[in-house]
Computed example of a mutant assay.
Amino acid sequence: MSRPDGGDAACWLSEVCPDCGALNEDPAGRCWRCGADRTEDDTPPAPGG
């Protein structure tokens, strides 16, 4: 029986809201959970992105 490789290989760090930890599909704009403005987020871009 083969084992699955596991979860996502992508780094989701750039999509995590630094204020509340919600995962946002759009890395810019406002957080859907807490409303934090993410347009001036200083999180460095993910490698290759």
Rank of each mutant, 00 (worst) to 15 (best):
G6N: 05
G6W: 05
P27Q: 00
V16Q: 04
P47V: 04
G49I: 01
E15K: 08
W32P: 05
C11R: 08
C11V: 12
C34Q: 06
R3Y: 01
S2Q: 08
W12P: 14
A46M: 15
C34W: 10
P4H: 02
G7N: 03
R30W: 02
D37K: 15
G29A: 03
G29C: 01
S2E: 11
D8G: 06
C11S: 13
G48D: 07
A46E: 06
R33G: 02
T39R: 15
D41F: 12
G21C: 07
P44Q: 02
G6M: 00
A46F: 13
C11T: 07
A28Q: 12
G48Y: 05
D26S: 10
C31I: 06
N24M: 03
G29K: 02
E15R: 11
G49C: 09
A22L: 09
G21L: 06
R33Y: 12
P47F: 11
A10L: 12
A46N: 09
D5R: 02
E40L: 15
P45N: 06
A22F: 12
E15L: 15
G48L: 02
G35C: 03
R30K: 12
G35V: 01
P45F: 05
L13W: 14
G35M: 07
D42N: 15
C11H: 10
D8N: 00
D19A: 07
S2W: 10
P44E: 05
D42F: 11
A46D: 11
D5C: 09
E25H: 12
L23F: 15
P47A: 09
D5T: 06
D37L: 12
C20S: 08
A9R: 14
T39E: 10
C34R: 03
E40C: 14
G48F: 03
D26L: 13
D19Y: 13
S14V: 05
E15W: 08
G21V: 06
G49H: 07
A10S: 13
D41W: 14
G48P: 02
A9N: 05
R38N: 03
P18I: 03
G7T: 11
C31T: 04
L23A: 12
L23T: 10
D19E: 12
V16P: 04
A36I: 03
C31D: 03
P47K: 13
E40R: 15
C34H: 14
D5M: 14
G35N: 11
D41I: 04
P45Y: 00
P27N: 01
G6F: 07
A22T: 05
G21T: 08
A28I: 07
R3Q: 04
R3L: 14
T43A: 11
R3A: 04
L23D: 07
D41K: 14
D26W: 13
R38M: 10
V16H: 10
E25D: 12
A9T: 14
N24I: 04
M1C: 12
G49L: 08
G29D: 00
C11D: 10
L23N: 09
A22G: 00
R3S: 07
